[in-house]
């Protein structure tokens, strides 16, 4: 097979060339600096840095909290998308528009605002404190911040799928005697599955690297509420650039793997979709 399949359309060389050059300059070259800096460590040294107990604990926290937040977004994102697509109620347009807010609000402002709300003396925190629930300065606070950050993804990926879902399918299910719940489980949910997975992974990928909002709401206690990006900053404080880049490289590899998973899901979905057509 040739590199490129024949096409009558013009401009491939220009567009492709420009894409590669710009991508290389802005993304690949700087990221390769990271990897090359790290490669000044031997494998043993690299392994020591990235598998230190404290680093492992912060991976666990970062990935655990991100997973939880993405999970919350999976459930509530589907719910919100469902409500926005299927039901009519007052203020719907406003709510629909508001879903994109976390994209636009700077993360530091989001972090400060959430801390103000969820601190034990905050608007929401004061009602949780008597119940023995502390959100801000605990790992739970990290989950709250990451849920905020990842909120738009599931909603925005699932919404169009629910919109396009043909009513006939559900009607057919109903005619065949399926209950509403059965229809949801057997017809609607499978159709929305790839979009849900994509949204989940996007929210997860975004959450793993998040720093600005988390730093205000987390307690930053080692082994308890210390996220990976904070460890990178800690290394830099000791002028340990190589140690910082080593951890950053691990994060980068994980990010890359995550995005690859998303794109594979989408590719797999569009293939299936295409075949059904």
């Amino acid at each position: 097979m040739k590199f490129k399949q024949a096409s009558v359309l013009p401009g491939f060389n220009l567009a492709f060339g420009y894409t590669i050059v710009y991508l290389s300059l802005i993304v690949l070259l700087p990221l390769s600096a990271l990897v090359i800096k790290t490669s000044s460590l031997s494998w043993a040294q690299f392994w020591d840095v990235v598998s230190d107990d404290r680093v492992l604990a912060s991976y666990k926290l970062t990935f655990g909290a991100s997973l939880l937040a993405a999970g919350l977004n999976l459930v509530f994102g589907l719910l919100v998308a469902w409500v926005l697509v299927r039901y009519q109620f007052w203020g719907k347009r406003f709510i629909d528009a508001l879903v994109d807010l976390p994209f636009a609000l700077p993360t530091a402002v989001a972090g400060i605002a959430l801390t103000t709300l969820y601190a034990p003396n905050g608007l929401i925190g004061q009602y949780l404190a008597p119940l023995g629930i502390q959100v801000a300065f605990k790992p739970l606070g990290i989950v709250v911040a990451l849920t905020f950050i990842g909120l738009p993804f599931v909603v925005r990926t699932v919404q169009p799928v629910l919109q396009d879902l043909e009513a006939e399918l559900e009607e057919a299910a109903a005619c065949l005697g399926a209950s509403r719940w059965q229809t949801f489980c057997k017809v609607i949910f499978p159709a929305a599955m790839p979009a849900l997975l994509t949204g989940f992974t996007l929210a997860f990928a975004r959450a793993v690297g998040e720093y600005g909002s988390v730093i205000f709401i987390a307690g930053n206690i080692p082994f308890e509420s210390e996220i990976v990006p904070l460890l990178i900053i800690g290394k830099l404080e000791q002028y340990d650039y190589v140690g910082a880049t080593a951890i950053a490289t691990v994060m980068l590899a994980i990010s890359f793997a995550l995005i690859l998973v998303i794109n594979t899901i989408q590719w797999w979905h569009s293939r299936r979709h295409g075949m059904r057509k």
Partner: peptide
């Protein structure tokens, strides 16, 4: 120590504003 803030000023805010 329940909170190790990222800066001196942030620690003050945690103590004074958040009541921790």
């Amino acid at each position: 120590v329940p909170v190790l803030d990222g800066g001196g000023r942030a620690a003050t805010t945690t103590f004074m504003q958040r009541g921790i």
